[in-house]
Every structure is written in C-alpha cells, then in structure tokens.
C-alpha cells in the first residue's frame, strides 16, 4: 500500500483514473461535456476543490471524531465549492451561466468525498496533495477527452475552432443529452478493450 510520491500522483491519471476507470462523479462528467471549454472549467474547479479539501482534511484527520466525519468532510468541501463558485461568477460569467447549478453540485461529487474518506483521512498532508493533484488531473483529462469527442462530432470543432472542414455535417445529437450517454458508453467500452490487452 505504501506507494512512492510519484506513484501517488500518477495513479490518478491512468491506473485509477476517476472518470474512465472508477466511474466516479458521473453526473458532471455527462452534464457539462457538451463543449471542451465547459469540460475544462468543470475539471479545474473540481481539481481546486479536491486539492484544497484534501489538504484541510489530512491536516485535521486526527481531530475529527470518527462518528461525525462525513458531516465534517461535507462542510469543508462545501466551503471550497462556494469559494470556487463565487470566483467563477466574478471572473467568468459566461461559463458560470453555462454550467448553472453544476458548480455548486461539486459538493456532492462522490469523487471528492471518496478521496477524503479513502485517502486524505489516512495519509499525510504531502501525500494528500499529490493524490489530489493526480486525481484532479485525471478527472480533468477525462472530461477533456469526452468533451473533445462530443464537440468534434457534434459541432465539428474543438475549443470553438473549426477542425473538420465544411463538408462534415455535424451530428447534433452528440452535444445533446443522449450523446453524452452514448459517447461515454463507447469510451468506457474502449477502456475495457485497452485493459484486456
């Protein structure tokens, strides 16, 4: 169980990737990945909350009574989510409008509570930061992957720039809700194929 610091960081990106392998925090993954910008913003906001709450919870891990730990974690997480929400509202109004209630909903993202319970409450602050960084990066990369697929097929563009020429007729369905399920289904199936080898 004792991983080296490098392993603590890299495990979140590939081996235990929260989006592609562990399938944690599916609601934001499906909901905000219509465009790459939204996916990226969501990934960064979640990473911020994840890293900060990991730091605080690992520092407080010897002071929080076992019986009420989940409630304590949620309060810590909700505080950072509120900070991220206000920051995004103040600086990036467009993104805040596009993401709507999904920024406040980071509070109930099972990835963050899961890392708090499974990792930060048992490890040192330094390791928890690495874990948060790795998991956050893995989450963001997963979101970028899915949103790239959806934006490319649904709009013919990535980050708003047209990639495929005008001959391509966009598959509108990919940016609509059903496209999220279908794209995610194919990506998870792809991961199964890669893991089999």
């Amino acid at each position: 169980m004792s991983n080296s610091p490098v392993q603590e960081f890299t495990k979140g990106i590939w081996k235990e990737n929260p989006v592609l392998i562990q399938l944690l925090g599916m609601c934001p993954v499906l909901a905000v990945t219509g465009t790459v910008v939204n996916g990226l913003a969501m990934g960064l906001a979640t990473s911020f909350v994840l890293i900060c709450s990991n730091i605080i919870i690992s520092l407080l891990r010897n002071f929080i009574p076992k019986q009420v730990r989940i409630a304590c974690y949620i309060v810590v997480i909700a505080t950072f989510v509120t900070m991220a929400d206000i920051f995004i509202k103040a600086n990036f109004m467009d993104i805040s409008k596009a993401l709507g209630p999904f920024i406040p909903l980071i509070v109930v993202n099972c990835l963050i509570l899961g890392r708090a319970e499974a990792f930060a409450s048992k490890h040192s602050c330094f390791k928890s930061i690495l874990d948060g960084l790795g998991m956050g990066a893995g989450f963001t990369l997963g979101l970028i992957l899915i949103s790239s697929v959806r934006e490319l097929l649904g709009n013919g563009s990535i980050l708003g720039m047209s990639i495929i020429g005008s001959w391509f007729k966009p598959w509108l369905i990919m940016v609509l809700p059903p496209g999220a399920f279908i794209a995610m289904g194919f990506i998870v199936a792809g991961m199964h194929v890669i893991k089999e080898k």
Binding site: P177, P178, F181, I182, M184, G185, V188, A189, H192
Partner: peptide, 22 residues
C-alpha cells in the same frame, strides 16, 4: 459484445432512453 458488458451497455441504453424522452 464483451467490451460492452456492464456499464457501457447500461450507458448506451440510457442514451436510447434519453433519445426517446427528447
């Protein structure tokens, strides 16, 4: 098909349901 067993096929099904609900 083997790679689609479990979660992927469930997601595909949900996609079809979402299509129907549209």
């Amino acid at each position: 098909p083997k790679p689609f067993k479990g979660v992927p096929i469930a997601l595909m099904t949900a996609g079809c349901l979402a299509l129907a609900f549209m």
